[in-house]
């Protein structure tokens, strides 16, 4: 099977490129959120290169599937996946966070094609995704809506307002992926303001719940690509913050830590 017709191999290749490219962006800018980029990249590569129906030449195509990046600080992951998906040329990535760059620290749909909504403050993605899914529901449109949130972000009450709304409206066209890396900016989620039992909470709000290894491309492809059901679907993707670079994994200080030259070189050696 060649790379082109082996979807898992293709996703894996894209994810590796995204990790290397995102880390270079962060290194060059000396700014960013690489820990959260790395926990989300396998999920996002799977969505864009295995699930989502989109056309980079027509970012406003009404029938496109939508992907909402609620953890808007993980722009290393978002900008590399949009670039890999063909929304803009690679040299735009070199401008990350430079003055007047279209690649702001948090995404802006008015600057950058492919960005569905502006995020950054947490707890915004799920309500917006719920609104998109309602638009699809009331117009009987065929598109699906995917939203990726962090897990610490679940502490924002707006998520639970939207979870209730989506559950009550049976938004089967909505899929919510939680990047469950168990770390927030300063410490673990459970020692900060615990989220568990997350699966039972989602189920109680009227969602189908699936648990998956958030770095297993084949498993991700299976659950993300599954035919929508009657209820909205919550996918708890168990992930590792900083995944892929040994000295970054499971370290809260890589939430917005940036590499020095030695760390960058060491990471590039591991990311092969």
């Amino acid at each position: 099977m060649t790379l082109q017709n082996d979807p898992v191999a293709r996703i894996k290749e894209k994810a590796l490129w995204m990790r290397r490219r995102a880390f270079k962006m962060v290194y060059d800018a000396q700014l960013g959120h690489p820990g959260g980029d790395f926990s989300a990249i396998d999920i996002m590569a799977t969505i864009y290169f295995g699930v989502l129906s989109f056309d980079p030449a027509r970012p406003d195509w009404a029938e496109r599937d939508r992907f909402i990046m609620s953890k808007g600080h993980a722009t290393g992951a978002l900008y590399t996946v949009l670039c890999a998906a063909g929304y803009f040329p690679e040299d735009w990535l070199d401008t990350y966070m430079q003055p007047r760059s279209m690649l702001n620290g948090h995404p802006n749909r008015n600057y950058l094609p492919g960005v569905e909504t502006n995020t950054g403050p947490l707890g915004h993605g799920l309500p917006v995704a719920t609104g998109i899914a309602i638009a699809g529901q009331i117009t009987n449109a065929g598109f699906r809506t995917f939203v990726l949130t962090g897990d610490g972000e679940m502490q924002e009450g707006s998520n639970w307002e939207a979870a209730m709304t989506a559950g009550n409206r049976n938004l089967g066209n909505l899929t919510w992926i939680v990047d469950r890396n168990r770390l927030q900016q300063g410490a673990g989620t459970e020692e900060t303001n615990g989220l568990e039992p997350l699966d039972k909470k989602f189920a109680a709000f009227g969602w189908d719940v699936v648990m998956v290894d958030g770095h297993d491309h084949a498993a991700l492809l299976k659950v993300l690509g599954a035919v929508p059901g009657e209820k909205p679907r919550a996918i708890i993707a168990n992930t590792v913050k900083g995944k892929g670079v040994s000295f970054m994994e499971n370290k809260a200080n890589w939430h917005h830590g940036v590499p020095n030259a030695d760390q960058f070189a060491a990471a590039m050696k591991e990311l092969v």
């Binding site: 799920l126 995704a129 638009a135 707006s158 209730m164 709304t165």
Partner: peptide
């Protein structure tokens, strides 16, 4: 008529999403 209940943050976010969806 989309009534999200007593949930104003959700209400405004849903509004933005509906606009994204062409409403």
């Amino acid at each position: 008529l989309i009534n999200v209940g007593i949930a104003e943050q959700c209400m405004v976010g849903v509004g933005a999403g509906l606009a994204n969806g062409g409403r």
